[in-house]
């Protein structure tokens, strides 16, 4: 790692002020950022830990809305979020990673193989920052790109609790990130299907599947529907065709789990 200063503010306002310094960077749980720093792939002048900010903690459910602090750890989400999201969080990384890694940190990083982004698209989320509210549908902007501005902090996230939802993940054998992951959420006004891990464009909503499932919420409704293999990721762990196939399989499994 390159040398940096370390700061640990206790309020959002202090954190925002600290992040105003040139090349200052926010530190959530560090489970991605610290390995990145070890590889010297980033060179912040200062790391601003968000772990001491009480107002960014907590996971609660009220009036059909799930509210999670940006600083909530994966373990806290796994313990206290609505069931489908809790199950997703319980399968991120490993127990030690879940005890440190945070929801806000993961979302801000927007790794194309991360799990949360699929949930955020499927669960009608709102990403709340120190400055504004961003609809989940507008937040993710390609690989490792988000709508966040420099120095902007995810303070909390709201999701609308669905009637039913399920996340199916197929793990890359080495990293155990998603080789493909499909989150299906059923609402009164329709079904949302979000796909992570698979596309070269990052997480996306699979509109054909949404339309089919909104009309007929059954695994068979997905018969004959597929994502375009051409836009899928190809790497050591799977071809474009394999990923496209996995997306279809996982979507059916998610629906079957709810049927």
């Amino acid at each position: 790692m390159y040398e940096f200063e370390f700061e640990k503010p206790s309020t959002i306002a202090e954190a925002v002020a600290a992040l105003a310094d040139e090349d200052a960077q926010a530190l959530g749980g560090g489970q991605t950022l610290i390995p990145t720093l070890k590889q010297r792939l980033a060179m912040p002048s200062k790391l601003v830990s968000l772990a001491g900010i009480a107002e960014m903690k907590g996971v609660s459910i009220a009036d059909g809305v799930l509210t999670m602090g940006g600083g909530a750890t994966h373990a806290e989400v796994a313990a206290d979020a609505c069931a489908p999201l809790a199950a997703l969080a319980a399968n991120i990384g490993d127990p030690a990673v879940r005890n440190r890694g945070t929801l806000g940190g993961s979302l801000a990083n927007n790794d194309p193989a991360a799990d949360y982004p699929a949930a955020m698209l499927a669960l009608k989320s709102t990403i709340v920052t120190n400055a504004r509210e961003i609809a989940g549908d507008d937040f993710f902007q390609g690989l490792f790109e988000t709508a966040l501005e420099e120095g902007e902090i995810i303070t909390s996230v709201r999701c609308e609790i669905p009637e039913a939802a399920n996340y199916q993940k197929f793990a890359q054998p080495a990293s155990r990130f998603a080789l493909a992951g499909v989150f299906v959420a059923k609402y009164a006004d329709g079904v949302r299907v979000a796909v992570t891990g698979a596309s070269e464009e990052g997480v996306f909503r699979w509109s054909e599947a949404e339309a089919a499932l909104s009309a007929n919420f059954a695994p068979d409704a997905l018969a004959g529907i597929s994502v375009d293999a051409g836009s899928m990721i190809a790497d050591l762990h799977g071809s474009k065709e394999y990923r496209a196939h996995l997306v279809a399989v996982l979507a059916k499994r998610a629906v079957a789990a709810l049927a």
Binding site: F6, K8, L27, G30, Q31, I34, P35, L47, S49, A51, A75, P95, A96, V97, N99, R100
Partner: peptide, 18 residues
């Protein structure tokens, strides 16, 4: 892996300052 405040964490992925 060590425990920090009762929770298992990876000591190589946490700053001493944290």
């Amino acid at each position: 892996v060590v425990h920090v405040d009762g929770k298992a964490v990876k000591a190589c992925t946490m700053l001493a300052m944290e």
